[in-house]
């Protein structure tokens, strides 16, 4: 209990004084995770929608693969990205290892299946609902997709936020591909792992509280920004 109260106190102190190290790692956490969420959404939302409304031979297989990838341990993804971008690996010449870009790539791999899978379920239900009407109204294929994406936008936002939630708290993969380098690739989660390793439980908890506050703030900002609260019954 003592660790928790002193952790909370430490968190408040560092936030109030705008501790430069805290600001730096928090900002990097936000940048990496929002970047990964944006890219994963660009890939995952259309992919999920496409799988939901098209019938093709490998459809079941693709869905099964997506669902399995959701359970992929981040450490495995981190190792995979490391091997890919290591100087001794196939993409080593790009020099991306131990950069925020590599962290974004690893997180995109981790959360795209989640975003796509949730989007797929949401759009599939909506498509079951809309199917007859859109056929009857003679909507073109592209018009159908537009209608589903637009009317399903709140469910799709939920899919993106689920991806964000997974990414912001992720540590295994970005520890390996980012390296937790001070002032370069250290983010909230890797800093928490580091401080826990040092036995600095109150600082680790303080960072944990900042992480939670950050996740809540982003969720609230997006919900208010898109005014889902005003029309919550949708």
């Amino acid at each position: 209990m003592n660790d928790i109260t002193s952790g909370l106190g430490e968190a408040v102190r560092r936030v109030v004084t705008l501790d430069p190290d805290l600001v730096e790692i928090t900002w990097l956490s936000l940048r990496v995770t929002l970047g990964a969420t944006a890219i994963a959404s660009l890939i995952g939302l259309p992919l999920g929608a496409w799988i939901a409304i098209n019938r093709f031979r490998a459809r079941r297989l693709v869905i099964a693969i997506l669902n399995s990838l959701m359970g992929l341990p981040p450490v495995v993804v981190g190792l995979f990205v490391y091997v890919l971008f290591s100087r001794s690996g196939p993409l080593g010449v790009l020099g991306l290892l131990f950069t925020p870009t590599a962290m974004v790539i690893a997180q995109v791999i981790i959360i795209t299946p989640i975003v796509a899978s949730i989007a797929h379920q949401a759009i599939r239900d909506l498509w079951a609902d809309y199917h007859d009407l859109l056929i009857s109204l003679h909507a073109s294929r592209w018009q159908r997709v537009q209608a589903l994406l637009w009317d399903g936008r709140r469910a799709l936002l939920t899919a993106s936020l689920a991806g964000f939630g997974r990414a912001i708290g992720e540590v295994g993969a970005i520890m390996i591909v980012g390296g937790n380098i001070d002032h370069a690739t250290r983010v909230l989660t890797t800093a928490i792992a580091l401080e826990t390793g040092k036995g600095n439980f109150d600082l680790a908890l303080a960072l944990g509280f900042v992480l939670i506050a950050l996740a809540v703030a982003v969720n609230l900002a997006i919900h208010f920004g898109t005014r889902t609260e005003r029309s919550s019954r949708w």
């Binding site: 936000l30 940048r31 990496v32 929002l34 970047g35 990964a36 969420t37 944006a38 890219i39 959404s41 660009l42 020099g95 991306l96 950069t99 925020p100 870009t101 974004v104 994406l149 936008r153 936002l157 993106s160 370069a184 997006i222 920004g225 898109t226």
Partner: peptide, 21 residues
């Protein structure tokens, strides 16, 4: 997809932020 438009600049900023001085 207003959300994506908001987030996209972050993605590119992150990609561009690798070169150190």
């Amino acid at each position: 997809m207003k959300l994506l438009k908001t987030l996209l600049p972050f993605a590119f900023a992150t990609l561009a932020a690798s070169a150190a001085a």
